[in-house]
Design a protein around this nucleic acid. Structure first.
Length: 112
DNA sequence: GCAGTGACTAGTA
DNA sequence: ATACTAGCCACTG
């Protein structure tokens, strides 16, 4: 179990920095976060890094979804529900397949 | 150090 | 549309 205070890798902090910039009502994909952090192709590490942020950090981990626009399955299924619930409260709509339209909600850096 | 695992992705069939 | 593959790299046993 790691916390943001003991993450050894500078790379992880970059991931967190990017994720924390995602505005409310928008989402980013794992690959996008990795690329913006300067580490393209390392989407898996993004997921791994976010796994340590389950709570009490000012990082909107719930705004990160996979390339299909779905909430990725993880160890504790309960969090998938929590994530969807939070996103819906931010105005994001899930369709009948528990998917969201990335073309509509995907975050674009600098898109103020 | 090696092999397996994983909140992933892009490509191919 | 689904299924499989290679590439990615930190973590774990």
């Amino acid at each position: 179990m790691y916390t943001i205070g003991v993450i050894r890798s500078e790379k992880y902090r970059q991931f967190y920095a990017i994720v924390s910039q995602i505005p409310e009502g928008q989402v980013a994909t794992y690959g996008q976060v990795a690329a913006l952090a300067g580490h393209p192709g390392q989407a898996r590490q993004v997921g791994y890094a976010l796994n340590c942020l389950t709570d009490e950090f000012d990082i909107p981990w719930q705004r990160v979804v996979n390339a299909k626009g779905q909430v990725s399955a993880r160890a504790k299924p309960i969090f998938e529900e929590i994530q969807k619930q939070i996103l819906e409260s931010e105005g994001i709509i899930f369709d009948h397949n528990d998917r969201i339209e990335l073309s509509k909600y995907q975050w674009k850096p600098g898109d103020c």
